[in-house]
């Protein structure tokens, strides 16, 4: 794998927007009471960052730096409005549950940083890949926190999937033999879940202490 490719897909895990850079936490913590909520907002956010960042990369040479931010906001606002209207027309009940958080994708700091920072410095291809990785990485955080809170809080997985995938998918909802621990779906549960996810991520990404002691201290 070339270093450029590795850098482009870093937002998937190593530089994950939510779990490593702590950006876009407000919608992440607010809507992830179920996997389906997380999936819907994660997909919408991913679509927005891919389209907006790629458009900004295409315009890179045309724009004065001072004009980049307002134009990025213009693109984001138009995109999000279209997605908001589309989801209200097609996924009416799900749209009602997500409420204000679809329009608020406009001001998701992580997406704006990507559309402004990466897109202004890198090629169109790199930006597209990196935006895809950012979107999928964000979606991953949504799904992980949504699954954790839904399993612990509701004792189900994929409840309300029919709101997103149609009546035929109703059977995909799993009833798990665990009791509902209410706190998981209340706001504090979002922070507990986020803390657990961060701890897990740190555990997976930090080098074992043995490496440091062998390189640092010699006996």
């Amino acid at each position: 794998m070339t270093s450029s490719l590795r850098e482009a897909i870093a937002p998937l895990w190593r530089d994950n927007m939510a779990l490593a850079q702590f950006l876009g936490l407000c919608p992440l913590l607010a809507v992830t009471t179920t996997v389906v909520n997380g999936l819907a907002l994660g997909l919408a956010s991913a679509a927005v960052v891919v389209i907006a960042s790629t458009a900004m990369a295409l315009l890179k040479h045309a724009l004065k730096p001072a004009a980049r931010l307002p134009i990025a906001l213009l693109i984001l606002a138009a995109l999000v409005t279209v997605i908001d209207l589309f989801s209200e027309a097609v996924f009416y009940d799900l749209h009602a549950k997500l409420g204000i958080f679809i329009p608020l994708i406009v001001v998701n700091s992580g997406l704006l940083v990507h559309a402004e920072n990466v897109a202004s410095r890198r090629s169109v291809g790199f930006t597209f890949l990196s935006a895809l990785a950012t979107g999928l990485g964000f979606l991953l955080a949504f799904l992980a926190l949504g699954a954790l809170r839904e399993i612990v809080g509701h004792g189900t997985l994929l409840s309300d999937i029919e709101l997103l995938a149609g009546e035929g998918s109703r059977g995909m909802t799993l009833e798990l033999p665990v009791g509902g621990m209410l706190v998981a779906i209340l706001p504090p549960g979002a922070f507990f879940g986020m803390g657990l996810l961060l701890a897990l991520r740190n555990r997976l990404t930090t080098k074992p202490p043995a490496d440091q002691s062998s390189s640092g201290i010699r006996r």
């Binding site: 315009l59 040479h61 045309a62 724009l63 004009a67 693109i75 279209v82 209207l85 589309f86 027309a89």
Partner: peptide, 29 residues
């Protein structure tokens, strides 16, 4: 670094495209 002329044209074109896209989405939905 871009040009102000180009920037203005791009911004105007984008604003028009954004207007059209939102309008079409509204009509459709």
């Amino acid at each position: 670094e871009g040009h102000w002329a180009l920037t203005t044209v791009a911004a105007a074109a984008l604003a028009a495209a954004a207007f059209y896209a939102v309008h079409a989405a509204y009509d459709w939905s």
